[in-house]
């Protein structure tokens, strides 16, 4: 690098400037609106202040959306990561792994709207799932999985599990396979290789996978409307924000809800990252001489 750097020193400023359009775009379209929304959230019809926030937290209909959203998104994230970790581990060197990843990528790319529509049909009272349960006598009456909590929860698993799986698989395959081999020659059984080698090296990846999975689940919107009970048990915070903005045209209130949403989200991210700091955070391949 040193020789290249000295040759290119003359042009250093020009090259660094290449980052400018990207930065400008994100500043203009992300940071500026975000700050604008932040300021807007403190304005109300009566002047500037915390009124919107006070209103949000003093109106159960609004403030409960935080608990509702967490109550759906947190278990869904735990289930997704909890399923994805052992499955990614078991299939990481399987000959069917490429096929499996190609299949699992389908629900991610189809997006939440299509999954919601599909689940409405599939899980509905006349859907194939209930038919199967009735025919096989696994259930005596149709089970209700749509227009309630479970519909939204299941839609989050359908789109979230493949996401978590692909993410964890990429972290797992990034761990140098010679390390568990070394552990094996030192007497570690496959289970202890997992506990003593894979798991500690996977902590950073797990933290990031959890955060990204949680962002997805926490921002649940279309499936909560289409597949849930948007007036009651699945009235998530996105719905409240959307209604404030596009049904009540109360942009300051909508901005306040968006800020609260971002705040809760970032709080969870910070919490996860804080836990991660307690663990090893270095390269996941052995040091090279």
């Amino acid at each position: 690098m040193s020789s290249a750097a000295s040759i290119q020193r003359k042009t250093v400023d020009v090259t660094a400037l290449l980052v400018a359009p990207g930065v400008g775009l994100v500043l203009l379209l992300f940071l500026y609106p975000f700050l604008y929304g932040f300021l807007l959230s403190f304005s109300a019809h009566e002047g500037v202040g915390l009124r919107n926030y006070v209103k949000f937290f003093s109106t159960p209909f609004l403030s409960q959306t935080i608990a509702t959203t967490l109550w759906i998104s947190f278990p869904a994230t735990v289930v997704n990561i909890g399923l994805a970790l052992p499955i990614a581990f078991a299939t990481r060197r399987h000959r069917l792994q490429r096929l499996l990843t190609a299949i699992l990528v389908v629900p991610i790319t189809l997006g939440t709207v299509l999954i919601a529509e599909g689940l409405l049909l599939y899980l509905g009272p006349q859907g194939w799932l209930n038919r199967f349960l009735l025919v096989t006598h696994l259930s005596t009456s149709a089970i209700h999985l749509t227009h309630n909590y479970w519909g939204v929860f299941l839609s989050l698993v359908v789109s979230g599990f493949p996401f978590a799986y692909l993410l964890l698989l990429s972290y797992l395959t990034g761990i140098d396979p010679v390390l568990p081999q070394a552990a094996a020659t030192l007497g570690a059984s496959p289970w202890r290789q997992f506990i003593h080698i894979y798991l500690p090296l996977l902590v950073p990846g797990l933290a990031i996978a959890f955060c990204l999975s949680f962002v997805q689940a926490f921002s649940v919107f279309p499936s909560a409307v289409l597949l849930g009970a948007p007036a009651g048990p699945t009235r998530v915070i996105s719905i409240a924000a959307y209604q404030a903005a596009f049904e009540d045209y109360d942009y300051p209130m909508a901005s306040a809800i968006a800020m609260i949403m971002a705040g809760v989200q970032l709080l969870v991210v910070v919490l996860i990252l804080a836990i991660r700091v307690l663990f090893y955070r270095g390269p996941t391949v052995g040091p090279k001489g």
Binding site: Y36, S219, S238, A258
Partner: peptide, 8 residues
């Protein structure tokens, strides 16, 4: 979440 910057 896209909602948080999408609305502003």
């Amino acid at each position: 979440p896209p909602m948080t910057y999408g609305i502003p």
